[in-house]
């Protein structure tokens, strides 16, 4: 599948709320929130695996990550979403 087709497929799956998971990653500071988030994104093809642990992903949640609160407010994992 091309990138575009994958996105179309994802977008179609998201229309059924049964396919959605809205989850957060929560932890004490430095227990590995950012690294886990990066790791998952790298495996979903959204981030180069060489960048894992460098806090690159999810810019828009950086504040929460830095403050040791809640992060990764949104990750969607439709049932048959293929991990590249």
């Amino acid at each position: 599948m091309t990138k575009n087709q994958r996105f179309e497929e994802l977008f179609r799956l998201m229309k059924d709320p049964e396919n959605i998971r809205n989850i957060g990653i929560i932890a004490h500071i430095d227990h590995g929130k950012t690294t886990l988030t990066d790791s998952l994104l790298a495996n979903a093809g959204m981030l180069s695996s060489t960048l894992v642990g460098q806090a690159r992903a999810l810019d828009f949640l950086e504040e929460e990550q830095r403050r040791g609160n809640v992060s990764a407010v949104t990750r969607r994992c439709p049932n048959n979403y293929k991990i590249s």
Binding site: R21, N22, I23, I25, I26, H28, I29, V70, V73
Partner: peptide
């Protein structure tokens, strides 16, 4: 905004105040 959460705990430090 979220319905579920992954609680991450450092195996060395264990459960801390913020956890």
């Amino acid at each position: 905004a979220i319905d579920g959460a992954i609680v991450v705990v450092d195996a060395v430090e264990g459960v801390m105040a913020q956890t």
